[in-house]
Computed example of a mutant assay.
Amino acid sequence: MLLKTIKGRHSILLILMPVVIVLLWMGALLHSESLTAGQNQMPLYELLLFLTGGNNFVLNLIACLLLILIAYGMVRLNEQYIFIRQRTDLPAFVFALIATGTVSLGGMHPSLFAAFLLFLSVDRVFKIYQGTATLSNSFDAGFLVGLASLFYLFAGVYIFWFWMALAVLGYLRGKEILAGLTGFIVPVFFVVAWYIWNDNLTELLNTIRNLFSSKNSLGVVSVFQYSYWGILGFLVILSSLYMLNVYEEKKISSRKYFIILLSFFLVSALSFVFFRGAGVEQYFISIIPVTYIASHYFVFQKHFWIGECLFYILVISSILIHFIG
């Protein structure tokens, strides 16, 4: 069966995974469109636009590469910290399916770069639990969040997630808080200093103001897209309930990682609710914890046929949405 095969460890699966992403991303590559046309963006994304000449095909190619890197990183992160206590390639495929499942996000968006950097920050946060180099890892986590905010403004709120993670890990101490805050400030400081040096700070402030105040519309969303999100929502709820049911059986480290991932998702959801300018692009960020929680459910679901049926539904709907979405 499909799920039984993919949740195992086969080198051919990891070789095929980029092919899956490229095929599902083909629409964005063949019909390259800008997702941020007519709106100024944060400095590092504007720099990317300058370096690529605003070529949408090149930007979407970079976006595809970022998706592949995150998918591979999903497997590596689990092998290093064993959130899912089984060696499996499944997170890479679950991420590949759901990351490409929102048709309106078929292309490069600043939030995708932010998602990549925030994913790297999760790795640094998990390292803090090991108790070694807590200050440098705290600095790195804050630095990555700061960099992410220079691509996508609303990624900056994840500095609060970092502090929540410190509390969960038992390291909510002055020096770790300060190290993370310093890391966050460093890239922001240099960018602001550059704008001041070039007597252009007003432009940066106007960009930030516009990004905060502009309403990000979902545009025209088909009933099929809503149905797909409904399937994902059902899967998230089911997977979370399953995780809560087996929570006490998990090792302390797995419990803490689960709470950190759940808080990561909640920060994304609250950003969407409370920030006018934060739109559907939050999807790229929120699916990072969703991938692990859903993969955990698929791996340990005791009723084999239920897991297989749900996985088939996810796979088929993730493919069909590109034709009817």
Results as ranks from 00 to 15, higher is better:
residue 4 K to A: 11
residue 5 T to I: 09
residue 8 G to F: 15
residue 9 R to C: 07
residue 10 H to Y: 14
residue 16 L to K: 09
residue 17 M to S: 12
residue 21 I to P: 06
residue 24 L to I: 00
residue 27 G to R: 14
residue 37 A to P: 08
residue 39 Q to T: 14
residue 41 Q to G: 02
residue 45 Y to C: 02
residue 46 E to Q: 15
residue 50 F to W: 06
residue 51 L to Y: 08
residue 51 L to M: 11
residue 53 G to E: 03
residue 54 G to P: 11
residue 55 N to D: 15
residue 58 V to M: 06
residue 67 L to Y: 08
residue 67 L to G: 13
residue 70 I to M: 14
residue 72 Y to H: 11
residue 72 Y to D: 01
residue 73 G to H: 02
residue 74 M to D: 10
residue 74 M to N: 03
residue 79 E to N: 15
residue 81 Y to P: 06
residue 91 P to Y: 12
residue 94 V to G: 00
residue 102 T to S: 11
residue 107 G to F: 04
residue 116 F to G: 03
residue 117 L to R: 03
residue 118 L to I: 07
residue 126 F to L: 13
residue 135 L to I: 05
residue 141 A to R: 14
residue 142 G to F: 05
residue 143 F to I: 08
residue 143 F to S: 07
residue 146 G to H: 05
residue 153 L to C: 05
residue 153 L to R: 04
residue 162 F to D: 06
residue 165 A to L: 08
residue 171 Y to V: 12
residue 172 L to H: 12
residue 180 G to Q: 02
residue 180 G to T: 12
residue 181 L to C: 04
residue 186 V to S: 00
residue 188 V to P: 00
residue 194 W to H: 06
residue 194 W to P: 10
residue 197 W to Y: 14
residue 197 W to F: 10
residue 200 N to E: 15
residue 203 E to K: 13
residue 208 I to M: 11
residue 211 L to A: 00
residue 213 S to V: 14
residue 214 S to G: 01
residue 221 V to S: 13
residue 226 Y to M: 13
residue 231 I to N: 05
residue 233 G to N: 09
residue 240 S to M: 07
residue 241 L to R: 11
residue 246 V to T: 15
residue 256 K to V: 09
residue 261 L to N: 03
residue 267 V to T: 03
residue 268 S to K: 01
residue 269 A to G: 09
residue 274 F to R: 06
residue 286 S to K: 14
residue 286 S to Q: 15
residue 287 I to L: 02
residue 287 I to S: 04
residue 291 T to Y: 10
residue 299 V to D: 07
residue 303 H to W: 13
residue 304 F to L: 07
residue 314 L to H: 13
residue 320 L to T: 05
residue 320 L to Q: 01
residue 321 I to A: 02
residue 322 H to Q: 07
residue 322 H to R: 03
residue 322 H to W: 01
residue 324 I to L: 13
residue 324 I to G: 05
